[in-house]
Design a protein around this nucleic acid. Structure first.
Lengths: 336, 336
DNA sequence: ATTGACTCCCAAAACGTTTTGGGTGATCTT
DNA sequence: AAGATCACCCAAAACGTTTTGGGAGTCAAT
């Protein structure tokens, strides 16, 4: 609406002085500065974002692309995390936006649009794949970014991730200690890093215990995927007595399959993510989650430091996993 | 990266011609146009977004602010809807972003930032309140916007909404026809339009049936809220035999309360939103939802027409509600 | 009276586009 | 052959900011 030019005119000052007054430069007198501030305030002046971006050559924007396929973003946590992230980015003058991927376009296309149009200063990537083309692209362009989840990229990059391997290994060992011998795994798509890592954790524990690693079904990381996977496992000769599920959503789907097939109180089960809804399922879902408070602040801080040019190696956070024991992990004493 | 200037130089053309060639103007020869296109392609040229926005005086951007309080956005549907919306906006050259509200800031502040910084051409509002300050602000600024949900604003504005009143009235009448007499309502916060509307629907049906409207508790639109509300209703002398819940999330919370208090198979219950997870609860959640395919396209279309200046009155869609009958709505034959 | 330091201010350039308002030849009309 | 039409191209202005590189005036020191 109101311009710097209009503002300057109404004050009888030059554009330069008004601009510098508002930016708090010392080379404009305190009196003038205050006068300008008042005028700007009462005129409701906001600098035109495009003009300032064009001039400053920075977008003051960080974007995160939002995968369109459903499953496993843990929306509740995710949104809370993003609010926290936005709050801390704001203190550095950066805005955060989430860009939903239009149908018919890929996440990579979106990254391209943002980066090549110089719309963003940095990006946040979620749901990383083991070989992630978004990561490769951003690395080739030299745009700062932080991922939620690791990748197998040759070049290091900043990330925050939970130690899914250890988490799933531990979870499996806990079942073993409780007497379970037929422990199954409901796995997510193995091109996702997290899903692969979690499966490896389960496998490692099984091998340590001298147990076969055949009770595993891979499915989409959704309730329906978990449901289908559980059905498949229950239709085998040798059904599992315990299930380690890649995500809470899959675990919730599995829960339904268990109810349908055997009444639902003989098989133990654990998920991952600590979705709020887990506390309200029947049985209440035992689960696990990445430790750490205020992840959003961490992401913001990593982003800022990445933008500042710190080396990727010092910007990698691997968080331990903690268990949240509710009811579903001790449904039965296994009859071996 | 590459400029129009660099591109022009490398081609031995003027900036003007290159720009016009890429925009497909007829006053540049087909041969030149093709040559420019090739060069732009191979140089990976993308126009600088800020520069173009500054010049064209339009942001080519539509934003939706994302409420930071949890509950009732129906993330799954919501995200799918946004993808569809983004797809159709893209055909008009518009981008869609979701802006999470930083902690410590209000949704209204965000709107201000977007609008007064001329960052957006239009906005999409979700989770409208009966008296919604965002709506009032956008109306005062004359910025095009569409809401998901109605308001009680004095001036008309474009919206898409489900007819919650009729839906909840019908749902209540269905319970009545099935023999229920003590039909409770778990209500959402009454400053939300949808929550108020749904409660009025339940009330209307109760009055039509000559039943008292006292079995109602208001709570936060989350699982926990539903849980608390159901507990409160079950601790009365005259417990309900059926519950109409404002949202699926509340219904899922209520489900847990029912299980804890009476084993969970004596009280019937219905929610609203058709969250995917409803198919996997125990019992499977009966629910309802707004009719209509591809809501995203509708939103996009309304936005475009609003921007084009069509009057608000012709841009209001009130959709009927359809029932999705699963198991939870017929848990028992009520013993009156 | 000059010099230097200091305070307060400003004109103009620059960021990368799009658009305005022609300009230059070639071809067609009469 | 003069005028009109057409096809193709371009210089310059404009969008609204920030930043550069001073300029004008005042005051103190020499």
């Amino acid at each position: 609406m109101t311009n710097l030019k209009q503002l300057a005119q109404s004050l009888g000052l030059s554009i330069t002085t008004v601009s510098r007054a508002l930016d708090g430069y010392a080379d404009v007198s305190a009196a003038t500065r205050e006068r300008v501030r008042q005028a700007a305030e009462s005129a409701g002046y906001r600098p035109n974002a495009s003009a300032r971006r064009l001039r400053k050559q920075r977008a003051e924007l960080v974007a995160v692309t939002l995968p369109s396929e459903p499953g496993h973003i843990g929306p509740a946590h995710f949104l809370e995390m993003l609010s926290g992230c936005a709050e801390h980015l704001a203190t550095a003058g950066l805005n955060l936006v989430i860009a939903p991927v239009p149908r018919g376009e890929s996440e990579l296309d979106m990254c391209r649009r943002f980066v090549d149009g110089q719309r963003v200063d940095a990006m946040l990537l979620v749901r990383t794949k083991r070989r992630d083309e978004r990561v490769e692209f951003l690395q080739s362009r030299g745009i700062p970014f932080v991922t939620n989840g690791r990748t197998e990229a040759a070049t290091q990059h900043p990330f925050i991730d939970g130690d899914g391997f250890s988490g799933f290994r531990q979870a499996t060992l806990r079942f073993h200690e409780a007497g379970h011998r037929r422990i199954g795994h409901i796995a997510g798509p193995q091109d996702y890093f997290f899903a692969h890592e979690r499966k490896k954790g389960w496998e490692a524990a099984m091998r340590e215990c001298g147990l076969p690693v055949d009770l595993c079904v891979e499915q989409a990381p959704t309730e329906h995927g978990g449901y289908m996977a559980a059905l498949a496992l229950l239709n085998q000769n040798d059904t599992p007595t315990a299930l380690v599920c890649a995500t809470d959503e899959m675990a919730i789907g599995a829960l339904r399959a268990l109810r349908e097939v055997d009444g639902g109180d003989t098989i133990s089960l654990v998920g991952h993510d600590d979705l709020p809804i887990g506390a309200f399922t029947s049985p209440a879902l035992s689960t696990m989650r990445m430790t750490g408070e205020n992840l959003g602040r961490n992401f913001a801080s990593l982003l800022l430091r990445t933008i500042a040019g710190e080396p990727a190696e010092s910007l990698q956070e691997l968080h331990a996993i903690e268990f949240i024991d509710r009811d579903s992990h001790l449904r039965s004493s296994p009859t071996t």
